[in-house]
């Protein structure tokens, strides 16, 4: 191992260092920016009350009994209220596949944190609305 080969290694290291200095960081400035999630991301659900028919297929297929339905609570003619328990949900996507009336979807929102366990049981108001527009907010870089 001569002097020049060591010098070559040294320059290679310097090259990498300089390249990294002028690159953008690989990490995200998380709560303010986030990566773009794929279209099929199985995040939290959204329930479209208008097309729901209260057929209970999603409740029956759920392998972890995370969905509860209330048939009495009606907004339209034959819909029902759904309660999603996100302390149990495993995001398998079976309920969305079971829904034949296009009333239940996944959204790309995956960060659901709450201060209280009880708040993770999403009631009808919470499951029917998105508190933020996921795709507009995601994938934006601030730096």
């Amino acid at each position: 191992m001569g002097f020049f080969s060591v010098l070559g290694d040294f320059f290679q290291i310097l090259k990498h260092t300089f390249r990294q200095v002028f690159k953008r960081p690989f990490t995200y400035f998380y709560p303010f920016e986030d990566r773009e999630y794929p279209e099929r991301t199985r995040g939290r659900h959204i329930h479209v009350r208008k097309s729901c028919t209260a057929c209970a297929q999603c409740v029956r297929i759920c392998p972890v009994v995370a969905i509860r339905m209330d048939k009495e609570d009606k907004k339209y003619e034959k819909d029902c209220a759904l309660y999603f328990d996100y302390t149990r949900c495993v995001f398998c996507g079976l309920c969305v596949q079971a829904c034949k009336f296009e009333a239940l979807f996944h959204t790309p929102v995956v960060d659901m944190s709450e201060g209280d366990r009880e708040d993770l049981i999403y009631g009808p108001e919470k499951i029917e609305t998105l508190d933020r527009e996921p795709l507009k907010w995601r994938g934006r870089r601030f730096r």
Partner: peptide, 21 residues
């Protein structure tokens, strides 16, 4: 995996009779 199935680890991809996505 994520682009294909929507999940990174638990893909839940196969189903009796074929695949899901």
């Amino acid at each position: 995996f994520e682009e294909l199935t929507g999940s990174r680890h638990t893909v839940s991809y196969s189903t009796p009779g074929g695949v899901k996505y």
